[in-house]
Design a protein around this nucleic acid. Sequence first.
DNA 1: TATTGACTTAGAGTTAACTCTCAGGATTAT
DNA 2: ATAATCCTGAGAGTTAACTCTAAGTCAATA
Lengths: 152, 152
Amino acid sequence: MYYTIGEIAKKVNISPHTLRFYAKEGLLPFVERSESGIRMFKDEDFEGLMIIECLKKTGMPIKDIKTFIDWTMEGDSTIDKRLEMFKKRKEAVEKQIAELQETLRLLEYKCWYYEKAKEAGTCEVHSKIKVDDIPEDIRPVKENLKKVRKLY
Amino acid sequence: MYYTIGEIAKKVNISPHTLRFYAKEGLLPFVERSESGIRMFKDEDFEGLMIIECLKKTGMPIKDIKTFIDWTMEGDSTIDKRLEMFKKRKEAVEKQIAELQETLRLLEYKCWYYEKAKEAGTCEVHSKIKVDDIPEDIRPVKENLKKVRKLY
DNA sequence: TATTGACTTAGAGTTAACTCTCAGGATTAT
DNA sequence: ATAATCCTGAGAGTTAACTCTAAGTCAATA
């Protein structure tokens, strides 16, 4: 079963234009062609596209993805390189998640801050709230906000 | 205690150039000026900068951050808007984290895949591995990779 | 037969958030 | 006094990943 570029475009929700752009960048060497040069995507190629999508989601630039694709085309001699690459991507994503979780904590603090301000009708209320009145889970965030000022 | 733009730049690790760019974009209306027009950052302004950084980390464009800053300058009448804004940012970040966690699972599968290939010296080994031999936690990822092919 | 959609090369346009350069002038630190 | 740092405005350059246009050809479908 083969798909044209237009068919696969719908399936992976990437425009034919963009898929050709990827092809030009060397991301799709595994896609077969008909005698007349038309790209013939097969079921397996979905997986290739999904790996590309996955790597893009990790923030990897196209050039680096190409390097990885080149390795896969090279065969078993590049297994080590590919493993190391995935390990690094994994670490990178773990870091991104950790950073977003920190960001989330600050947002949670701010939500609490404005909930309180809303109740009181004014942000002034925060000059009257004691440390003990701040929910335990978000207290450290406020502390941190203060700490940083003096850290430097 | 006041800081010049160069001093604060070092503290927040953003170049004076970029800080002036932010100022031009209307992100720093709260920064005082000396008689001669020199920006005088105070300790409180750190917090402002950190909130801006936080919002940037959520992927919020500068224009939208400016809108929020304008609200804070407007005063208590905009508390509701600000609360809603932070709630939405919180949801956005939660979604980003969830997506990255999905990405991470695919990376974990790929790490396992290449660990196995490395052991065997060839990727061919994966045509011989039975579903039961795939660790339980990453098995669904492989299933998913297959499912998607047929989903459409 | 007409339309739709595939292909190519080549290059222009877009967007966001910087990042820098220049020119000219004021202020501050050593 | 001299260098470093501050200010402004205007505008150019950068980067990545698209996104599109044009111009011309070829193939498959109704």
